[in-house]
Amino acid sequence: MSTFRMEHKNPEGLFQSKAFSQAITVSGKAKTIYIGGQNAVNASGELVGPGDLEVQTKQALHNIATILASEHASFANLVKLNIYLVSGSDPRVGYKAFLEIAGELEHPPLVTVLFVSEFARPSVLLEIDGIAVIEDND
């Protein structure tokens, strides 16, 4: 039996989305995983998919999946994602890639999407950071 509880809240009077939740509460004995900004750089330090938002999104999500797996977590454990896109990018392309990589989550995380003028590495089109929660076994 889990020693923590994560409740996805979509209060009446707010938009009900399949892509994101409106609020999430976490209580009990939990471990928080803070995921630093992930872009399309692979394990060799190479940028994957220059100029291709879909390919870059998939690589960033692969990086996030690797971080989650290293903590025995999955996309289902995500509480919050912040997605930064270069201005002019179509967020629907990223959402399509998310569905392909993570699947349609029964309880999606909180999501904030921001547009930025550029990143430190000009050919990067997006960056994603996040927070996940798992049971604390310590």
Rank of each mutant, 00 (worst) to 15 (best):
D138I: 12
K31C: 11
L126K: 01
E71R: 11
G94H: 03
Q16P: 05
K80I: 03
T66I: 07
S123Q: 15
I83N: 04
K96V: 10
A19Y: 11
A69P: 03
S87P: 03
N82P: 06
S123D: 14
A76M: 06
F98A: 10
V113Y: 01
T32F: 15
I64F: 05
A120E: 14
A23V: 07
V48R: 04
V55A: 09
S2R: 13
V79R: 10
Q22V: 12
D52V: 01
Q59C: 01
I83V: 14
L114K: 11
I131F: 07
E7I: 15
Q56Y: 05
E71P: 03
I24R: 08
M1L: 11
G94I: 01
G28D: 06
V133Y: 01
M6F: 05
E71S: 09
E100Y: 11
F15R: 13
R92Y: 12
N77D: 12
S21D: 02
F4D: 06
I128N: 02
I131V: 15
T25Y: 09
E118F: 08
L105R: 05
G49F: 01
V133S: 01
A23Q: 13
D52R: 02
G103D: 07
S44M: 11
E135H: 06
I101S: 04
L78G: 02
G103P: 02
L14R: 10
V26G: 12
N77A: 03
P11C: 08
N137V: 14
G28I: 06
I134E: 06
A76E: 14
K18G: 11
E104P: 01
G94L: 07
Q22H: 11
P108F: 00
S17V: 09
K58F: 04
I64C: 03
G49E: 01
R121W: 07
E12A: 14
M6E: 09
A73R: 04
D90Y: 05
I67R: 05
A97Y: 00
A76D: 14
I67Q: 04
Q56H: 12
Q16A: 13
Q38D: 06
A97E: 01
L99G: 05
L126P: 01
I101D: 04
K9T: 08
